[in-house]
Design a binder for these strands. Structure first.
Lengths: 252, 252
DNA sequence: TGGTTACTTCGTACAGTGTACCCAATAAGT
DNA sequence: ACTTATTGGGTACACTGTACGAAGTAACCA
């Protein structure tokens, strides 16, 4: 599987694409495809088979077109990923959430989590300098609204939203990796652990790692696996929100 | 650049490799290479040119050998990455840190951050089911020691260490991506932003995103860029440790 | 109506990737 | 001297993104 990069081309071209306001040409044959159809096909492949399967040739095949045809609609693969990302962010809820800031942040975090779980390929796209499409803008606006007016500075608001988003990104990445490694290896966590233990006992000096042994085996017994991603998500989210709460209290 | 996977083969073979206890064969020609030399060459390439440049052929070239020769020493690329990771974790400090749990966790987080910054390719290796080599074990032991005896359960200790590690991983990933995107695009954050603004103003309805506009421009003015990774790291780490502190206080 | 021009589709080519499958060379044991 | 275990490495396969250019099509102008 591949890690891909967004954009990288002319910003003007990217924005033109994201906001779909390219001037319709008058001459020449009518285009057989649309950006929408290309994005939909690419999403279908990426959702079902992962980012590694989403090659330009594969997307073109899906549409019954030649590979190079796509380049008439999209400057390159990076820009296609931009549009895919913005499209998927369109699935996020926009309704105002009832409750205090903590309930709102909590809810936004879970919505992002669900999105990543439904489109795990998103986690493999490097997104510093996010594609500034309509849905990315709306997402930022929505998340800022959760913590507006609770006494944080603008810089703190931005940092908090980024922190939450980064946390969810990392947590779901771990969860998805754990899920995928089971498929790829055909081995459950328990099987994997059981396959290692006898060799480890023989090779590694267990007395050298007393805490690792104790904590590792407690956790393994508790979850029947060396890692439980649901528990990790809940634990981390609670700690993070507690940390933000401490700051909010200070600012009061 | 590529996202790579660790292991994936026979656990017995992987552990044999990580702990370097393969039985020396008696017959046949003396091997011209060693696992150590292969790992060193691979690390040199990955550190200097990124994981994308570290192909099996490239590593072999670096050693004056044929590509397929490496497979005499290492089962595959995944296992080579395992050994590289464990080797790099050997660079982490092991001295006990003075101070309370918070000082220790803080210090451990910064040590991990430095390691990632020096070997950014690590961030592209998927590590659910970490390679259980000697240095990975020592790292886990060291980090657990930071929070041993402060009233947390074993499960909480494991979750806390994982949360911190995940946080640092994500934070440094953002920082490295931001650093790399400048090189790859030849455009500073400021230039990037200035190239977008005029088009955005023309395309997007700014009234639709009031918070995003206000906070975005405040942050941009404060840091002279849309994202300051050092500030983000400090802010996030402080929130996280505050969150853990809340839990520790509860357990008292 | 014929010609020009803008625009479309897409085949070919290039330099890469990890590694399965071989065969030849080498050194120890018998 | 012969067998056997082991190493070195060449070739081949099915992929990747996309630059280039040829060929076909539709709207405009004379």
């Amino acid at each position: 599987m591949t890690q891909e990069y967004t954009g990288s081309g002319d910003p003007a071209k990217s924005l033109e694409l994201l906001w779909r306001n390219r001037p319709r040409p008058t001459r020449g044959p009518k285009p057989a495809l649309t950006v929408e159809r290309i994005v939909a096909a690419a999403l279908r492949i990426a959702d079902a088979e992962g980012l590694g399967a989403m090659s330009m040739r594969r997307v073109a095949d899906e549409l019954g077109a030649g590979a190079m045809t796509l380049y008439r609609y999209v400057p390159g693969k990076g820009e296609l990923l931009d549009v895919m990302l913005d499209a998927v962010y369109g699935e996020l809820p926009r309704r105002p959430i009832a409750g205090d800031w903590r309930a709102k942040l909590d809810e936004a975090a879970r919505a992002n989590r669900d999105l990543y779980l439904n489109h795990p390929w998103m986690l493999q796209v490097a997104v510093s300098r996010p594609p500034l499409g309509p849905n990315v803008m709306a997402k930022y606006e929505y998340e800022l609204a959760a913590i507006e007016g609770i006494g944080l500075t603008d810089v703190e608001m931005d940092a908090t939203v980024a922190l939450l988003n980064g946390y969810v990104h990392g947590a779901v990445r771990s969860a998805v990796e754990a899920r995928q490694v089971i498929q790829r290896s055909g081995m459950s966590d328990k099987e994997w652990w059981l396959a290692h233990v006898p060799h480890l006992d023989r090779i590694a000096d267990v007395e050298k790692y007393p805490l690792a042994s104790r904590v590792g085996s407690t956790v393994g017994a508790e979850f029947d696996a060396p890692y439980d991603s649901d528990h990790a998500f809940e634990y981390g989210l609670a700690r993070l929100l507690d940390g933000v709460a401490t700051l909010v209290k200070d600012r009061r």
